[in-house]
Design a binder for these strands. Structure first.
Lengths: 223, 223
DNA sequence: TTGCATTTCAAACATTTGTATGAAACTATC
DNA sequence: GATAGTTTCATACAAATGTTTGAAATGCAA
């Protein structure tokens, strides 16, 4: 056991620096300076720089997934095992948006770190990302319970689009603010969640309508 | 003037390598080896590595924007100055999706390069990205013409979501394929375009309905 | 205290990186 | 064909980076 205060100091310092300055230009020396520990400590406690980053990301991912599942379970229990599609989607995108949007000076280090992750992915993180699929399947299952009769394909697309909208909003909230000259309020987190949820929910219903149309009337455009 | 065949050889080699292996682990030495030129050639012709990357990105961005505007103009001319919202959105997301999706072995180097850009952004590229806003404003204007009476805020969100869905599909098509066990066909490019367009178009109409509701009935959820 | 394991530390290592240099090769103009 | 401008080349430079090392310090149990 012993004092793993060095370990946690490194983790905290690294997360702070990565959150503020990105993965690109934070070196081990920056981290150990911030943490007031010796350069060799990182390799001693984590093995390598990549493993440090990975541990940081895994920790935060687990927290996010746990929060998502907590909301999902709560919603399903409240609905006797079947939550509304809105509630399922809210459980999916809510935690991300709640954590990573809102007034900038109120965002936790953890949130700012996860924003960085979504902006500039780095090899050790990308390797881990693949495990996310099992987690998402639980939401597909919940969506299936929520919308029985819907084709799976539509559920997958709906989930994909919901995540897309949430992710992009987190990633590029600055651009949206600039483009809209402030008219889109990215600090109104709950409003944004509802917006994403309602569009995604609608995508699910639209999808099925679409798939019943003959394909010809869909495609084709001035080219 | 003279022979800028060295220049173009470097550009081609760099784009190929970045497309295949990402920005992270492609060095100048890799590039010059691939291009069969001398190491110093990059600095001689481009000034620095970052300027090489920037030129690559600017070139491809201009091409993309030009294609988007071409489709937009065509659609507006066909509609006597006012295109359908679907056509506007198609012009926005079509080129990206058409270029970056479809059977992997048929994707051009340029397309694969742009996919990389969207996955792992790098400082010189991020700096340029900001200029994209003026380009997007043209689409906002077209959307305004297409849907007079819509509030601007809704248009901004609609465009934002449309790009989000397109980008995420490009960026994470692999995950979607895995998640859906192949049931979502990411090679059906035109189908995906229509899907994104119809969801985004619907988001625009939904948004206005939403904004007329009293805010209280919207938010709030099991927490 | 003694002894053993864990942890810290300063220093060095070994690469890798982008960039600069200065001479050589080439090209085109007069 | 000499000259001036451009381009290529081998090589060196300088800085940064993650990692390793081996000794010193510390903690802890017997």
């Amino acid at each position: 056991m012993a004092s793993d205060q060095t370990r946690t100091a490194i983790l905290a310092a690294a997360e702070r620096l990565y959150a503020d300055r990105g993965f690109g230009d934070v070196t081990l020396r920056d981290i150990v300076a911030e943490a007031n520990v010796n350069l060799a400590a990182v390799n001693y406690h984590f093995g390598s720089k990549d493993e440090l980053i990975a541990e940081l990301f895994v920790t935060r991912s687990i927290q996010l997934n746990r929060e998502r599942l907590r909301l999902l379970q709560a919603a399903e229990e409240a609905g006797d095992g079947r939550a509304s599609i809105d509630a399922v989607l809210r459980a999916l995108v809510g935690p991300t948006l709640r954590g990573c949007l809102g007034p900038e000076n109120q965002r936790s280090t953890a949130a700012r770190f996860m924003i960085r992750v979504s902006i500039e992915s780095v090899p050790p993180i990308r390797r881990i990302r693949n495990r996310e699929i099992d987690h998402l399947r639980k939401f597909i299952a919940a969506m299936r319970r929520s919308l029985p009769g819907h084709s799976d394909v539509e559920l997958y697309w709906g989930l994909h689009f919901a995540l897309a909208m949430a992710q992009q909003t987190v990633r590029d909230s600055e651009r949206l603010t600039k483009l809209s000259e402030g008219k889109c309020d990215v600090d109104d987190v709950e409003g944004i969640i509802e917006r994403v949820v309602s569009v995604a929910a609608m995508a699910l219903t639209v999808g099925d309508a679409r798939s019943k149309l003959p394909p010809r009337v869909l495609a084709r455009d001035a080219r």
